[in-house]
Nucleic acid binder design. Structure first.
Lengths: 233, 233
DNA sequence: TACATTAATATGTAGGTACATATTCTTGTC
DNA sequence: GACAAGAATATGTACCTACATATTAATGTA
């Protein structure tokens, strides 16, 4: 007797989630420790641990060594955004991709970029302005700053043919990434660059990346009118 | 000799990432199987597995049973967005939160909402329009549709005091969530509701949630001018 | 009481074994 | 050669043990 069937960690996760949903444990409450739950569910501690890791990752609970597991007080909608390389995004939609280098020069970082990196003083960086096109229509305009200290080779890359976006992604994978999304009104400059009507609403993505503590790049990508970012999860 | 120190899964992960970065294994290439790598790194297969799970989660590699592990052909910037309950977001910024119910009525879903849920026919749902305020200034306006079949109790909730956002988050956690982000030009209606100047750029978040296959809610949240969504990771 | 030191404890991780599961590959049949 | 059935195999999971690590709780000292 006591036929102990094997429980999958997903079953256990759903059971624990169930306890939270039916208010057995409310926001801010402390859950029993893993070992106790394992005993109760009739599974190994490692299985409870696996389940808990998933719940923690999805923002349902918070775990701290010795502190135990608590139900998150402030529920969040957690979504994973995948921002692909622009070329692939364009090609996936069935358009022909093209890329145009607008300008490229070494300049001192302006305050906005300093803020993104957390600099207190301006630094000389490579500024690259480029346009991504889909079937020859403007798709995304990017204004990018690249650290010359972290990425010295960039000066010897021909950015008219090779695109900075892809070169960096393939050669300087980041370990940390900040992302800022907002809406901006189109200016006269956007009108020419993105064929946007002046005053039209544009979607902006600012992305700053580091490898450990070393700054790699910070870019401001302005999408064409009507652009949408979509995720499923 | 052969002092076999213990390797952490993060070390192993970084080593494997290193092999990808230095082009030992390029995009689309197949990595050695876990056991082989474990032998090579001098650790247990479970440690390699742990490392690989992390790399797969971060979109670096793809894993398939029997198929093995391959380096992802199309690198992505993967970011986790945490969209908190609006009240908490407002309070965290140090403002006083208030909520105002604008309208509430049962209506047939319009095409946009049908598309979000994947309906082919209109359905009667509860439509709730509400305004979130920060220090009495408009913060986010939400136009929400709630399924009467999945959430029948909602009709007996007093949404003038309890806010639909929080009630749902606490009472109907979702298992699936679609998210759509874009920019929109302010209309005359926004001018009154969000104190936006006509023509100003507004940030819009559309969120649709299900519990398994059952639709819960679909909402279109329009933020006040200047709103930014920010993530670190 | 205030503060530093030490003990206690819950989660995190490494290693190992056994088996499950999903594919791919191989082989057999027509 | 086409297709189906079965074998082979890489990843996934469950359970276990032993430590590691981060914090909290308890204790001792001034």
């Amino acid at each position: 007797m006591s036929e102990r069937r094997r429980h999958s960690w997903m079953e256990i996760r759903d059971s624990i989630r169930g306890l939270i949903l039916n208010a057995t444990y409310g926001p801010g409450d402390k859950l029993p420790r893993d070992e106790e739950l394992a005993l109760r569910f009739g599974c190994a501690r490692s299985t409870v641990h696996r389940a808990m890791r998933d719940l923690a990752q999805n923002g349902i609970v918070e775990r701290r060594r010795k502190g135990g597991t608590t139900v998150r007080r402030d529920p969040v909608t957690r979504a994973t955004l995948d921002i692909p390389i622009t070329r692939l995004e364009v090609e996936q939609r069935g358009y022909r991709y093209r890329h145009r280098l607008i300008r490229q020069s070494v300049q001192d970082t302006p305050p906005a970029i300093m803020a993104n990196f957390g600099f207190s003083e301006p630094r000389a960086m490579l500024r690259v302005e480029a346009l991504h096109l889909a079937d020859n229509r403007p798709y995304i305009f990017e204004d990018r700053w690249i650290s010359l200290e972290t990425v010295p080779e960039i000066t010897s890359v021909d950015l008219t043919h090779e695109n900075a976006n892809e070169w960096l992604v393939r050669n300087r994978p980041y370990s940390k990434c900040d992302l800022r999304l907002y809406a901006r009104t189109a200016t006269a400059g956007d009108r020419d660059m993105l064929q946007a009507q002046e005053g039209e609403a544009l979607f902006v993505m600012e992305r700053t990346t580091w490898i450990d503590a070393a700054p790699i790049t910070s870019l401001c990508a302005v999408a064409h009118p009507g652009y949408q970012l979509f995720t499923q999860g």
